[in-house]
Structures are given as structure tokens and as C-alpha cells.
């Protein structure tokens, strides 16, 4: 009896040893293909990136991220192809906004800039100018961004735009003017994540370490848990936080626990904690 047990345990262990490298191999291949997909994506190689993510999914189907990226990218490719053919301004704007959100989430600055140029050319509003300036800044075109922001009527520019102006001024070494913007632009009490993020960037450039970290922590606190990794990646790639890189407090701020409750519908843990729970069926009249 004991001999049989021993043989069974040995066989099970041998099977586990035999399978284990295969499992980790699949995961490694998938991770490598995923990294390749990310690299291609950052270069604006959408089709090739999709293929890489699809291969990554095929190599390891246990992680859903690659499959999700494929379905999103497929829509993005289709939207990019159709954008120029859209005549209706509303439809065009909606498509452009969704593409812009994708470019910003995946740090594809050159595509965002090209899109925002079209956007500003088409609508020519304060908002489109601010968007274009932001994309210019992402590409390091600081002089051009500054001149565009400076051209916006002071009475019309948004707080977001003012912070961007402060950032670009600080980047250009005009710290006094940037400091003035900080002084004259108090943060609204209910500032959203975007505003808090820009405020943190500006303060980091002005060497206000404590202020930058506070705003950054507040921004991450207001992000839904499912959005945090995307904005964390963005913050780490942002040169304006250069002085804080390697700082333990910076890392802690980026890992601030979200105060937003999410359900599995919106990417979080459970229905019980969902912020839409009370109105979840009523929201769509279900």
C-alpha cells in the first residue's frame, strides 16, 4: 500500500515538474509578445501591435488583458480609417475624442498631436486649443505650446489650461510666471483627477515637492481602481516628475488607495461596493 502511495506521489511530482516549464514558458512568451505589442503601439504601429497582442493572447489565454487590447485596438484601427470620411461634426468629434483617450492612455503622443491639430483646425475653440497645446507639450514642443496657450483670452481659458500654461512656462525656465499662475489659480474644492494631475506636475517643476505629492495622491485617490495602473504609467513616463523619480514618497503617492468604489461592471471587485449599485438597473431603465 505504502509502495503504491509513494509511486503515485512520485508520478504526480514528475508530472508537475514536466508541466511547470511549459506553463511558465507560455507565460514568458506571452509576456514578451505583450511587451513587443506595447513597443509597437508606442510607435503608432497599430496593426502590428494588434497582431502581437493576439499572439500573446494565443500563447496564454488565461490573462484577459491581451484579448481586451485586441478588441479595443481593432475598434481604434477601424475608427482611424473612417475618421476622415465622417462628415457630421458631432460624430467626428465623438470618434476623435475616443481616439484621443486611447492615445493618451497608451502614451502615443505623436498620434495625439496629429489628431489634435485636425481637431483644432475643425473646431477652433478654446478647448481644442488647450488640447492641442497639451499634445504639443507631450511631444516636447514647448515654445509652440506656450505661444498657443498665451494666445487664448485670459478670461476664457480654463483652469486646466492655466495649469498647462504654468507647466510649459516652467519647462521654458520662466519660473516666476509659472509661480504667479499657481498663486492666482486656486484649485477648486472639487477638482477632478485631471486638474489635480496637472497641478502636481506644475508643483513638481516648481520644486514644491510636498505640494506635488499631495496633489498626486489626491488625484490617485479619486481614480477608480481599474484606471490607476494607466495613470501610474503616465506619471512615471512624465518628464515633469523627473525630480521625484526614485523617491519613495512619489511611489507611495502613485500607489494611493482609491476611494472610488467599483463593481465588476466597471472593472472593480463586487456589486456590493459599486457606486452605481443603488441606481444600477434604473440607470438604463432596465
Amino acid at each position: 500500500m505504502r509502495r503504491y502511495t509513494l509511486a503515485l506521489v512520485t508520478a504526480a511530482l514528475a508530472l508537475m515538474c514536466a508541466l511547470q516549464p511549459a506553463w511558465s514558458g507560455d507565460a514568458e512568451t506571452s509576456a514578451a509578445l505583450h511587451a513587443e505589442g506595447r513597443r509597437l503601439l508606442s510607435q503608432g504601429e497599430f496593426v502590428e501591435a494588434t497582431r502581437a497582442f493576439f499572439k500573446a493572447f494565443e500563447a496564454d489565454e488565461s490573462t484577459t488583458e491581451n484579448a481586451e487590447l485586441v478588441t479595443v485596438l481593432r475598434r481604434v484601427i477601424s475608427l482611424r480609417a473612417e475618421l476622415d470620411r465622417k462628415r457630421d461634426d458631432q460624430v467626428w468629434e465623438r470618434s476623435a475624442r475616443s481616439l484621443r483617450a486611447f492615445y493618451y492612455d497608451h502614451l502615443i503622443a505623436q498620434e495625439a498631436l496629429a489628431l489634435d491639430e485636425q481637431f483644432h483646425e475643425r473646431f477652433g475653440t478654446v478647448e481644442s486649443a488647450t488640447m492641442l497645446a497639451e499634445s504639443r507639450m507631450e511631444m516636447g514642443l514647448n515654445e509652440e505650446a506656450e505661444s498657443l496657450l498665451a494666445s487664448i483670452d485670459a478670461g476664457k481659458i480654463s483652469i486646466y489650461g492655466r495649469f498647462l500654461h504654468g507647466i510649459v512656462l516652467a519647462r521654458l525656465g520662466r519660473f516666476e510666471r509659472a509661480e504667479q499662475i499657481v498663486q492666482r489659480t486656486p484649485l477648486p474644492s472639487e477638482a477632478d483627477t485631471g486638474l489635480l494631475f496637472q497641478s502636481a506636475r506644475l508643483r513638481a517643476l516648481l520644486n514644491d515637492r510636498a505640494g506635488a505629492l499631495t496633489q498626486l495622491a489626491r488625484a490617485f485617490e479619486q481614480l477608480p481602481p481599474s484606471r490607476q495602473p494607466i495613470d501610474r504609467r503616465r506619471a512615471l513616463a512624465c518628464p515633469d516628475f523627473g525630480s521625484l523619480h526614485g523617491d519613495a514618497d512619489f511611489s507611495a503617492a502613485l500607489h494611493t488607495k482609491s476611494m472610488v468604489k467599483e463593481s465588476s461592471c466597471t472593472g472593480g471587485s463586487s456589486c456590493g461596493g459599486c457606486r452605481h449599485a443603488a441606481s444600477c438597473s434604473r440607470a438604463t431603465g432596465g
Binding site: A67, L69, T71, V72, R75, R97, S98, A101, D105, T266
Partner: peptide, 17 residues
Amino acid sequence: LTEATFDLVENRWRASP
């Protein structure tokens, strides 16, 4: 039902679950 879509309210892409 299965293709990703952009959520204008939340300003984010949603892959279909």
C-alpha cells in the same frame, strides 16, 4: 455585444466582458 466601445461619460474604452 462583443466589440469594445468608448464610454463617453467615463472617458474610457471598455472591452466587452
